[in-house]
Nucleic acid binder design. Structure first.
Lengths: 337, 337
DNA sequence: CGGCCTGGTGTTATCGCTAACATCACCGGC
DNA sequence: GCCGGTGATGTTAGCGATAACACCAGGCCG
C-alpha cells in the first residue's frame, strides 16, 4: 500500500543536488551567476526526479501567468478556425498555453463575458478574433490594462490589430483576371458587416479603377456555397460575364457549380477566382485559382504584438498586415473571343 | 502620477467587510457555517472592490487547477473541429478553462509531447481527440495518474472513451434506404484507419445483413469531396446502383455532383445519404438526408467522465456512447421501377 | 447548573516559488 | 595588507489562498 507521494518540489531537487532551492531556481531561470558545474548537478537532479516547476507557485509570486486567452466565435468557418489553430500552435512554441473562450454570437455581452472569464484566469494577454462589426464594437467595453490584440478586426479602430491584407489580395486576384484579357471582373461579395469581405470589395474596386475598367454591380452573398450557387445562377445567364472574383472559395464553389450546370465552361468561357485556399480548392473542378492568406504569419504577428505589450506595456507599431499570396491553378483563362 | 495599485486580495475584502480573510474564503467556497448577514456583508465588499480570487494561490494550496487540457489535431475537418468547439463551451460552463494543445500529426511523439506540455501546466485532466489508430496507439505511452478521456478513439481499448455511436447511425441510414424499397445500398467509406469510418462500415453492413441484402463491394475514399466525386463517377456509371450511403457529407457532396453531371437524378434515380450534417448540407442540391452526431452531448459526456475521474479517481462506466439522429431531407426516394 | 456539543468566527501554518538581501571567498589596487 | 568589488551561493520574507485547529457563545442534556 504505497502512498502516492507528492510531486517533487524545488527543495527536493536542491537536496539531491546538494545546493539551496534558490540555486535551483537560478538554474531554471537561466540566471548567469551559477557555476557551470553546479548547473550540471542541478540539471541532473531535475532530470532524475522528473521535476517540473509548479506554475501556480511561480504565478503567485511573479503575478504573471503563461496563459493567453483567446476569444473566438463558436463557428467552423475555415478562416477563423484556421487562424485559431495557427495561433495555438505559435503560442505553444513560445511556451504559452492558450485558453480558448468560445462565444456563440459575437455580440457585446458575450464578448465582454468571455473577456471577464479570461481576466478571472489572470491571463497574461487576450486575443480577440473579431471579424465583423458587432464584435469590433464590443471591444469598446473591454477595460484597458489587459494586453489585448484584435485579429481580423476593424481597420479603423485604434486597438492593436493584425489582419490579412484583404485589399491587396483582392487587387492581385482581380488584376490577374484583367491581365488575362477580361474587360471587367464581377465580384461575389461576403457579408457586408465582415471586414474581410469589405476589404476584398475595396481591393477589387481598386484594381478595376486602376485600369479604368467599368465596375459592374456588386453581387452580395454570405460565405456559403449555397449563396455562391444562387449568385452563380444569375451570373451564368449573363453572357457578358466572363470573369468572377469570389470573396471566398466556398462561394467560388457554388459559382463553379452553377456555371457547370448551365454549360458555361470554366475557365474557357468564364474565369473564376476565390479567396482562402481551402484544402479542397485544388480538387475543385477545375482546380481553383485563389488567394491564400498566411494564417501562420498572422498568428506569429499576433503573438509578437501581444508579447510586446505584455513586456513593455506598449507597442510601437500596433498595426500589422500580412500579405496574402496568389495561388494560380486552372480556373483562369483569357476570355472567349 | 497615480501608482497602479495591485489587485485586491482576500485580506482587502476582509478588512472592508470587517471579518477575517478566512471568512471571506468561506463565503467564496459556499461553506455552510456562515451567518447570512455576514455572507451578505462579504459579498457586498467583494462587489465593491471588484475582487477576483487568485487562482494561482488557490491552485498552490489545493494542488488542483481548474484547467483541462485538450490534445487535438491541427485540422479543420468538420467533425473534430465541432467537437472541440462544443467541448470548450461545455467546459466553460462548468467553470473550467480549456487549454488546447494542437498537434500537426497524430503520431506517438507529437501526442506524447502535447500531453507532457499539459502535465507541465498541471491540468486537472486531459482530453485526447484520437480519431484514428495512430493516435490511439500513442495513448499507450501516456503515464497513468492523470485523469484522461479519449474521444472518438479506439472502441477496443480500455481507456475511458466517449464516442458517437457510428454503427447505430450508419445502420439507421442504411435501413432508411432499404425501407424505401432499395434492394441494396452501396457505401462510400472514409479512411480505413479512422474509427468513425470503420464504425460506419460496420453499421452499414449490419443493416444489409439484417434483411439478408446482398453486400456490394466497399468503395474506399478519404473524407474529401474530391474523393467522393471520383467514387461517384464510378457509381454513376452503374445502372444497378440506386442507393448510396456516404461516410460523411463531403463525400456525399462529391457523389451528388458526379450523379448530376451524368444526368442521374437524385433522389428519383439514385438516393444518397451522408453523415455529419454539416451546416451546408441543407443547401446541397437536393438537400441532403444525413445523420447528425450530437457533438454537444459528446462534449458533455466527455466532461462528465473527466470530472468523475478528477474527483473520484475512478469511473464506474468508463465508456459512453452518444446516439446520433437521422435528419430526413430530400435526397432519398424509392428506387425507379 | 456544569459539561458537552455545535455553529460562527479568528489564528496560524503551509503550499512552492521568486525577490531581496546576506554571506563569504577571492581578486586587484594603492 | 587593508579595502572595495564581484561572483557564487545561502537565508529570509513574502505572494494569496485553503486547511487545521483554537476559541467563544449558546443551547441542551442529565
Amino acid at each position: 500500500m504505497e502512498k502516492t507521494s507528492r510531486d517533487p518540489a524545488m527543495t527536493d531537487v536542491a537536496r539531491l543536488a546538494g545546493v539551496s532551492h534558490q540555486t535551483v531556481s537560478r538554474v531554471l531561470n537561466n540566471h548567469p551567476n551559477v557555476r557551470e558545474q553546479t548547473r550540471l548537478r542541478v540539471q541532473a537532479a531535475i532530470k532524475e526526479l522528473d521535476y517540473r516547476p509548479n506554475r501556480a507557485a511561480r504565478a503567485l509570486v511573479t503575478g504573471k501567468t503563461q496563459l493567453i486567452g483567446v476569444v473566438a466565435q463558436n463557428s467552423t468557418l475555415y478562416g477563423p478556425a484556421s487562424l485559431l489553430s495557427a495561433f495555438e500552435e505559435a503560442a505553444g512554441e513560445a511556451g504559452f498555453a492558450v485558453s480558448v473562450g468560445r462565444v456563440k454570437v459575437l455580440d457585446r455581452d458575450s464578448i465582454a463575458a468571455a473577456v471577464e472569464r479570461h481576466r478571472d484566469q489572470r491571463v497574461a494577454g487576450i486575443v480577440v478574433i473579431a471579424p465583423n462589426s458587432s464584435a469590433a464594437d464590443a471591444l469598446a467595453d473591454v477595460p484597458a490594462g489587459v494586453p489585448l490584440v484584435t485579429v481580423d478586426g476593424d481597420p479603423d479602430r485604434a486597438t492593436p490589430l493584425v489582419t490579412v491584407d484583404q485589399a491587396a489580395g483582392a487587387f492581385e486576384a482581380t488584376k490577374l483576371l484583367i491581365d488575362a484579357g477580361h474587360e471587367t471582373v464581377w465580384h461575389v461579395a461576403g457579408p457586408a458587416d465582415w471586414f474581410d469581405a469589405a476589404g476584398r470589395v475595396q481591393g477589387w474596386r481598386a484594381a478595376l479603377d486602376s485600369v479604368s475598367a467599368e465596375v459592374p454591380p456588386l453581387v452580395s452573398a454570405d460565405w456559403s456555397a449555397a449563396s455562391g450557387y444562387r449568385a452563380g445562377q444569375m451570373l451564368a445567364r449573363m453572357p457578358e460575364v466572363t470573369a468572377v472574383f469570389c470573396s471566398n472559395d466556398h462561394l467560388a464553389l457554388g459559382v463553379l457549380r452553377a456555371m457547370s450546370e448551365r454549360g458555361r465552361k470554366v475557365p474557357h468561357e468564364v474565369s473564376v477566382v476565390g479567396f482562402d485556399d481551402v484544402p479542397e480548392a485544388a480538387y475543385f473542378i477545375p482546380p481553383l485559382t485563389t488567394v491564400r492568406p498566411d494564417f501562420a504569419a498572422v498568428a506569429h504577428e499576433t503573438l509578437g504584438l501581444l508579447l510586446e505589450q505584455i513586456s513593455d506595456g506598449e507597442t510601437a507599431r500596433p498595426r500589422r498586415t500580412v500579405a496574402p499570396t496568389l495561388v494560380r491553378r486552372e480556373s483562369v483563362a483569357p476570355p472567349p473571343r
